[in-house]
């Protein structure tokens, strides 16, 4: 399992659109992708769970990837969040 802590930079946090971008990008990976935030775990492939996490701008989240392509999945996920998720 690999993980990294990143800061969410989108103006409006992980709302509908960025959550959709994120889940669509990590879904093709075979590894499980989890977001740890505020002491809870959320499925990174689920738009609904990502939104339900209510992650605001400037929050720090931990991305955890576990599976055969975990390194590639984590690299992609981190890159996306750091680039502002297309916002």
């Amino acid at each position: 399992m690999v993980s990294k802590v990143v800061k969410v930079t989108n103006e409006q946090g992980l709302h509908m659109r960025p959550a959709t971008v994120f889940s669509a990008a990590v879904t093709p990976f075979d590894s499980d992708v989890k977001i740890l935030f505020n002491g809870n775990q959320f499925d990174g492939k689920s738009v609904m769970m990502l939104m339900a996490a209510c992650i605001k701008k400037d929050s720090e989240i931990e991305i955890q990837c576990d599976g055969p392509d975990e390194e590639a999945a984590l690299a992609k996920a981190v890159e996306l969040v750091e680039s502002g998720l297309g916002d």
Binding site: M16, R17, S46, M48
Partner: peptide, 16 residues
């Protein structure tokens, strides 16, 4: 149109 596209993304969600 994004409103309706949002509905599509939600129903495609594995959790839903």
């Amino acid at each position: 149109a994004e409103i309706m596209e949002g509905h599509l993304a939600m129903i495609a969600d594995p959790t839903m």
